[in-house]
């Protein structure tokens, strides 16, 4: 554990709390892509299967359980509790274009041909693109509630902080995970446009609006 990874994880936690807070206080999941949230459940469940057979640390265990539980809870909020506020007609990204290629990539690039290894790889690739339905929805509507942008910023900060974490681990442990690093760079890259608007508009007190 190093400071980059720790604050990355904290940022990830914060993003989830921000999202749940937004849904509860506005009593609405407007502006949130259900598809992206489903993909996160798939990411966490496939990656954290190792909860069943390996122990890393209490920190690791608690975080994994939290990420699985909170992502399922968000699906419940969107599909049951605040169902009328969820508008599938603007959540139109075709997730099969993400899941299919990620499955193929996982079969090619993995650390061993075991079901758990391929699923781990799959979860890494899928996480790197899971935000796309959400960003696509944002692009379509052209604007977002400020709290939704804070959610996305915290989520983007999480993976951004993992990059210095890997650089640190390379120098301190001589350790590189090419699958995680490649997917992580892609994932962070997807946030660059969003970050630009977030820093130049939202943090200056303006509404998040994309140019027409």
């Amino acid at each position: 554990m190093n400071i980059f990874r720790f604050f990355g994880d904290i940022s990830h936690l914060a993003s989830i709390f921000i999202l749940i807070h937004k849904i509860h206080t506005s009593r609405s999941c407007r502006g949130i892509s259900f598809k992206t949230q489903v993909l996160y459940v798939a990411v966490f469940v496939t990656r954290y299967l190792d909860l069943l057979y390996s122990w890393v640390s209490l920190y690791n265990f608690v975080m994994k359980v939290f990420f699985i539980a909170s992502s399922c809870y968000i699906l419940y909020l969107m599909k049951v509790r605040f169902r009328p506020t969820n508008d599938p007609s603007i959540d139109t990204f075709r997730v099969e274009y993400l899941v299919g290629p990620c499955a193929v990539l996982a079969l090619i690039f993995n650390y061993g041909y075991a079901v758990t290894e391929v699923l781990w790889s799959f979860s890494i690739f899928l996480e790197s693109v899971a935000i796309l339905p959400q960003l696509f929805m944002l692009q379509r509507t052209g604007e977002a509630e400020t709290i939704t942008t804070h959610y996305l910023a915290a989520l983007g900060a999480y993976r951004t902080l993992y990059i210095p974490n890997w650089i640190y681990r390379y120098f301190s442990e001589g350790y590189v995970d090419p699958i995680a690093v490649t997917a992580g760079l892609v994932q962070t890259g997807l946030y660059l446009d969003f970050f630009y608007v977030y820093f130049t508009k939202v943090l200056q007190g303006q509404k998040f609006e994309l140019p027409a």
Partner: peptide
């Protein structure tokens, strides 16, 4: 695994 994967990360 090869020991190279970052399974201890979240």
């Amino acid at each position: 695994g090869s020991g190279q994967s970052s399974k201890d990360e979240l």
